[in-house]
């Protein structure tokens, strides 16, 4: 197996184009998959020595996050805490301190586990993915990208993400078998645009419900344009249960997750609406 350690994005995509190699981000999934035989790359392109991929910064009304920013770096970022609260919350609880120090947001998308903690918040926050290859670069909404199989070609690099900075509020919650080190059994991210007492727009994304994290368009529609109160919360719970029922069908976990999602949904909204139905 070949091993490349490029120092620039240009060099990395050139190597990817010229070889059949796989990009290596933090490695917390890929190193394990190589060991179990699930992944058998002919070469690795280690992205760890490209400083520009680690940046988290504000540019023209967006938060730009390099694909190699770690969960720990995102979880320590004031910019992320202020403008992408759901993502910030997800970064506090993913894996363990050791995993958060190594695992990256780009790797989370590249591996695209059904339970990937980073994806529901990015979906709810309306994130776009910055892809780059020798053919050029593009920004693709994450929700669009996740409907493609495969997500992109072998020689395409996840350059980073951008999240619009706006007045939306967001939150994230997940259910694991224990508090630390547990893979999410179910995760919910919600973003809402509130105008006075009215919920103008809503985006709800679910993780570990089906093959990949997804944004529920019908939930967004049903919950938008209503007053934020206890009735709204109850309606949201009924709707989200319906979505889980449809997504999981006859899977063994369906009866459990259908009920559990109501609590996880409520928790994801805890920073936005109180138990009593008033704004938090």
């Amino acid at each position: 197996m070949k091993y490349f350690q490029p120092y620039s994005v240009e060099e990395a995509i050139e190597i990817a184009h010229a070889s059949e190699s796989t990009f290596l981000a933090g490695g917390t999934d890929l190193v394990l998959h190589m060991r179990t035989g699930k992944a058998q790359p002919s070469g690795l392109i280690d992205l760890g020595k490209i400083p520009v991929l680690r940046e988290i910064k504000e540019v023209d009304g967006f938060i730009e996050i390099g694909s190699m920013a770690t969960f720990a770096e995102l979880g320590n970022s004031e910019l992320v805490a202020q403008n992408a609260y759901a993502l910030w919350q997800a970064c506090q609880s993913m894996g363990s301190p050791q995993i958060r120090n190594q695992a990256t947001l780009g790797g989370n998308l590249g591996n695209c586990s059904p339970a990937a903690d980073g994806l529901p918040p990015l979906l709810a926050l309306g994130a776009e993915v910055h892809l780059i290859s020798q053919e050029g670069e593009e920004f693709v909404p994450l929700s669009t990208l996740l409907s493609r199989t495969p997500l992109f070609g072998q020689d395409t690099l996840i350059r980073g993400f951008r999240i619009p900075i706006n007045s939306w509020q967001s939150g994230f919650a997940k259910l694991g078998k224990r508090r630390a080190l547990a893979i999410a059994r179910l995760s919910v991210a919600v973003a809402v645009e509130i105008n006075g007492t009215r919920v103008e727009n809503v985006r709800v994304a679910l993780g570990a419900v089906g093959r990949r994290a997804f944004l529920s368009e019908s939930l967004g529609r049903e919950l938008s344009g209503l007053d934020l109160n206890g009735a709204w919360l109850e309606k949201g719970i009924l709707e989200v249960q319906q979505i889980v029922r449809e997504a999981l069908g006859a899977r063994a976990s369906a009866p459990y997750k259908r009920v559990a999602v109501s609590g996880v949904f409520r928790e994801a909204l805890a920073s936005i609406i109180t138990e009593g139905g008033t704004q938090a």
């Binding site: 091993y3 350690q5 290596l24 490695g27 917390t28 190193v31 394990l32 060991r35 690795l44 280690d46 760890g48 020595k49 720990a72 894996g95 363990s96 301190p97 050791q98 995993i99 120090n101 190594q102 080190l181």
Partner: peptide, 30 residues
């Protein structure tokens, strides 16, 4: 465990704890 669950293999790399079973030696270059 050899899969990043237990932390027995923890080392400090550049001031941060990591599971040395999930880091390639080559990634630790420098």
């Amino acid at each position: 465990c050899g899969e990043g669950e237990c932390g027995a293999c923890t080392v400090i790399m550049d001031g941060k704890t990591v599971n040395s079973c999930l880091v390639l030696a080559a990634q630790a270059n420098g």
